[in-house]
Design a protein around this nucleic acid. Structure first.
Length: 426
RNA sequence: GUGGAUGUAGCUCAGUGGUAGAGCCCCGGAUUGUGGCUCCGGUGGUCGUGGGUUCGAUCCCCAUCAUCCACCCCA
């Protein structure tokens, strides 16, 4: 038994070496959303358990065995959100955002699922998601995909991800197909492996995905989802494909692509990569026209996606696509020699920050020899060392030493030094 | 939830049934006010945790916790 208190399994600390990369990613997302006219919504990370049961589906893995559920002090059953869509719908309905209007929303934040952690899969993980409400045409499906495609391009990932596309049809068509499929599997019950027999009741569409070679022949002859679409869904799907073609977005039709959450209908898609091992999906989404009504609202078409931040960060690291400027240190490091100068340094630091709002300045604290201070200036990653020694203090001067370029250091009046610093910024 | 691998210094890892090692990092010195290279010296470990076997366990055994990988599932 370990007595040390440590982080909860599958929940990670984000350390300072890592946070610049996250901030870079988040900045990219934020500007992208603004460019497409999506507005941010923030909801609590805890909701009533019933919200997730009713939206995600009672018999899904998430609801059956992965939710962090606990009783509030008053006896209510609460759950840490396992995904973002349900809460987004709840909040939008609760505040009348869906009343007679369309909405384009995005969100970002931690999600919680009690799964066995592995590469790219954690118990607390982060998603960025978008949700568009009140629009039922293929144009908005296409926009959502175009937005995601632009993000990959911005991040330099476009050559490393693949778009997979499918349509589940209307809920009626999907249910009918599901029955047809189950009937087919039951006729071949003796060919099903143990896993597939279990899925027969929980998620029969998943059986199509089985890698078991003994079942390959039987699966090849199974009825195809795309052959059982209702007419309206088929037209919708064709129109979406046409728009993607026109925009030059490549995709692969994957008839076996089904999503794990019950609320999807019609369009479903996934962006996948082969660079992350077995957790290859970096972004997934689709249309969920029935969800708002299912949660007690008026019938409202909706489409969206969620992307896994940890997976994308991992992908950026794996492919070495981390921009250098996201890792840089302060502009300058101010060090001081001598007791009086050390006292002055803090004040001088404030004056510099007053004069140069764009300046990132680290002031040395903790004393130490000159050599060690210079060393720390270097290690901080700063481009400039600012030296306030006894000589400079006497003369009201400051020495600027260039740590990253071949250039003589210069000792200037403090006012001149501030001007020089201003020139060196940006 | 199932299977496999791994836990030794802040990090990456050697190692042996008989008192614990390297490299990097950090600190100091060679150079009373000038970093990166070099050289010298130093700090730092209840060998994941608990139990068992043993004269003696970091090493062998059991349990437990954690990490990683895969299955499953998914972002």
């Amino acid at each position: 038994m370990s007595k040390k208190i440590q982080a909860i399994r599958g929940m990670n600390d984000l350390l300072p070496d890592q946070s610049p990369l996250w901030q870079y990613f988040e900045d990219q997302v934020r500007t992208l959303m603004r460019r497409y006219g999506y507005r941010e919504i923030r909801t609590p990370i805890v909701e009533q358990t019933a919200l997730f049961k009713r939206s995600i589906g009672e018999v899904t893995d998430i609801v059956e065995k992965e939710m962090y559920t606990f009783d509030d002090r008053n006896g209510d059953s609460l759950t840490l959100r396992p995904e973002g869509t349900a809460a987004c719908v709840r909040a939008a309905m609760e505040h009348g955002l869906l009343h007679n209007q369309t909405q384009r929303l995005w969100y970002q934040g931690p999600m919680f699922r009690h799964e066995r952690p592995q590469k790219g899969r954690y118990r607390q993980f982060h998603q960025v998601g978008i949700e568009a409400y009140g629009l039922d045409g293929p144009d908005i499906d296409a926009e959502v995909i175009l937005l995601s495609a632009r993000l990959w391009k911005q991040l330099g990932l476009d050559a490393h991800v693949t778009l997979e596309l499918n349509s589940l049809g209307s809920p009626e068509a999907r249910t009918a197909y599901r029955d047809t499929l189950v009937a087919y599997f039951e006729r071949h019950h003796e060919l099903l492996d143990e896993d597939s027999r279990r899925r027969l009741s929980s998620n029969p569409l998943r059986i199509l995905d089985s890698k078991n070679p003994d079942m390959a022949e039987m699966l090849a002859d199974a009825p195809q989802l795309l052959d059982h679409l209702d007419e309206a869904s088929r037209e919708h799907f064709e129109a979406l494909k046409a728009r993607l073609d026109a925009a030059g977005i490549a995709y692969r039709i994957n008839p076996r692509l089904v999503r794990g959450l019950d609320y999807y209908s019609r369009t479903v898609f996934e962006w996948t990569t082969t660079a992350l091992g077995s957790q290859g999906t970096v972004c997934a989404g689709g249309r969920y026209d029935g969800l708002v009504e299912q949660l007690g609202g008026k019938p409202t078409p909706a489409v969206g996606f969620a992307l896994g931040v940890e997976r994308l960060i991992l992908l950026l690291e794996t492919l070495e696509l981390i921009p250098a400027e996201s890792q840089r240190g302060p502009d300058a490091y101010l060090l001081a020699m001598g007791e009086r100068a050390e006292r002055e340094a803090l004040l001088l630091g404030e004056q510099l920050r007053d004069a140069l709002p764009g300046l990132s300045l680290q002031v040395h604290c903790g004393g130490g020899g000159f050599k060690s201070q210079i060393k720390k200036a270097d290690r901080s990653g700063a481009r400039l060392a600012l030296i306030l020694g006894e000589d400079e203090l006497e003369q009201g001067q400051l020495t600027i030493k260039y740590l990253r370029e071949e250039r003589e250091q210069e000792t200037l009046d403090q006012a001149t030094a501030i001007d020089r610093l201003g020139e060196r910024l940006d």
